[in-house]
Write a protein that binds this DNA or RNA. Structure first.
Lengths: 214, 214
DNA sequence: AATTAAGTTGACCAGGGTGGTCGAAAGGGA
DNA sequence: TCCCTTTCGACCACCCTGGTCAACTTAATT
């Protein structure tokens, strides 16, 4: 097979068996998430993935190629396993967020390393290669639509600016999630019972509902 | 002068003239903040501080010594230029936070690199050397006291859990601040007019007041 | 069985960066 | 002059870098 330029580059990698592919992906996600592009080491990646050095450059043309593949892959997963699973027909803002939080957590548990990696380039647009910026912007636009479109404004108290309430609620929820992330750092998710945390989460949402809704 | 063990180590550095001392501190703050302890490079620090390589190890006994000095210095500044300037006699929770936000911003503008550095070890207790952990905990305790003690609970609506409201308000404010930090990333603070941002901030606080207070 | 192709390895490369040392020089006060 | 403090950057031995490549194994095809 002749390598056509562009898309066909990583075919070898894609056709790998699932187990090995995931090991390489996760090793790379972790290393890039922890150290960033320049400081990340391909040697560390191959060692953790338990493959020979040469294979990485057999699958990808170089470090940059691997990095771009990871971003592209990440955008796809976030779209498919997170955004598209959110129910945008729910017109109650808090309920939609509540549902989204569950979906997000489920996606995170399926791809924890990928999500940690995503956090490193979502904020910092500069670290994204130009050819992926449009897809990135498209994703953000999609995210905004799915979270904020077709909300029932009439549920809110009429003495507060609804747009401001949106953001305050979002910040509050993100704050709770960050605190959880920190509190559960290093815990074994597989054996962890999330029910009490969801219960606590819902209690906070109830406070928000009482406060911002009429 | 004989070097006694412990405290006297960095005397040479402390007696430096202000300009040079600050250049070294800021260079080190930036490097450690950006790369973390292991990945940070003493070569980069001396180059940015425009001093010879030897000087760094003349002032500090080694990389670790420099790092610990930075943490100690940071804890002192946060205590003196931030926490201790907050007015704990204000019993209105939102007003106290409002005031604290101003104080914090002022302190940040005085020591931007130091505050960025502080963010890297405040969350991750593991990165702090044992001998500084007590001071760290003391600072956090102090912070909690100053922010949450002697609050007038009666201002809150009586149908919401006040402790939960505390956290929700804190998260909301931190969310706003993070968004600002990101929106103003790279801006020139010296020439920037903060008034419109403070106005917007106060508008958000008003929404919180309307929502959580009776 | 023989041939070809695809997959896999790790030693190896040149280059550069690491924390830290040290001899030399400069400065300054007596 | 002497002596002590301060300053520099070349230098050290070592480690790690992204990437290559000849050699080897495995699988498929004839």
């Amino acid at each position: 097979m002749v390598k056509r330029r562009g898309k066909t580059i990583a075919t070898k990698f894609i056709n790998l068996d699932d187990h090995k592919r995931r090991k390489i992906l996760n090793a790379a996600f972790r290393e890039f998430a922890e150290k960033g592009f320049e400081q990340a080491s391909t040697n560390v990646i191959v060692k953790e993935a338990r493959i020979g050095k040469g294979m990485l450059f057999y699958y990808f043309k170089n470090k940059q190629g691997l990095y771009e593949y990871l971003i592209e892959y990440t955008l796809d997963v976030i779209m498919k396993d997170y955004l598209q699973r959110i129910d945008p027909s729910e017109r109650d803002f808090i309920k939609r967020f509540k549902h989204a939080a569950r979906v997000k957590m489920k996606a995170f548990l399926e791809h924890p390393d990928l999500f940690r990696f995503s956090g490193t380039f979502m904020l910092d647009q500069e670290s994204i290669p130009d050819r992926l910026k449009p897809r990135m912007e498209q994703l953000q636009e999609m995210g905004n639509k799915i979270m904020y479109e077709n909300i029932d404004y009439s549920l809110f108290r009429d003495d507060v600016d609804v747009e401001k309430a949106f953001r305050l609620i979002r910040w509050a929820i993100e704050g709770y999630q960050n605190e959880m992330k920190q509190r559960l750092d290093g815990a074994n998710f597989a054996t962890l019972d999330f029910d009490p945390y969801w219960k606590e989460f819902d209690e906070y949402l109830d406070v928000l509902r009482k406060s911002f809704y009429s």
